[in-house]
Amino acid sequence: MSEPGRAGPAEQGRRDAVEQVSAVRPFLLTEGRVVDGEQALPMETQLVATPEALAQLEEPHLAFERRAIIETCRVPVSLAELAARLKLHLNVVRVLVGDLHTRQLLTVHVPRAAGGSDLDILRRVIDGLRAIHTSGGPGHD
């Protein structure tokens, strides 16, 4: 933190790893805009491309990352999944998704923020996990 701009290529981190890079690269895509932490979309937010967006894919004026987001959101995708698949930083994707939503190219389904106090949801998740447990074999499918 004390030496901004000293991106360390020697620090090749893996899992749980940390590296310092210039902010210019990731946030160039957002023209330097960042999201307000309090209003940031939850990572499990579901995103779906609108029919207009899919129509615009035929045209050349949707470029690069925005096009890639629409392509990926042909089927419902979570914000975290979108960021991971496009190898973009989560907060960059948050800004781009906000833009596409404003242009009505992306439907944004924000999850209910019920957490661990929603009895119905808790029961459904427990039942869902149990059903996999009894029907599935060892390992994942």
Binding site: D16, A23, M43, S78
Partner: peptide
């Protein structure tokens, strides 16, 4: 030249039924 710290988070998911999907972070 503000600094950016990058944190990697792993996650997976599990479709419990067509209307309910569990994300594990």
């Amino acid at each position: 030249r503000k600094t950016t710290t990058t944190v990697a988070m792993d996650f997976g998911c599990l479709t419990l039924d067509p209307t309910l999907k569990l994300y594990i972070f």
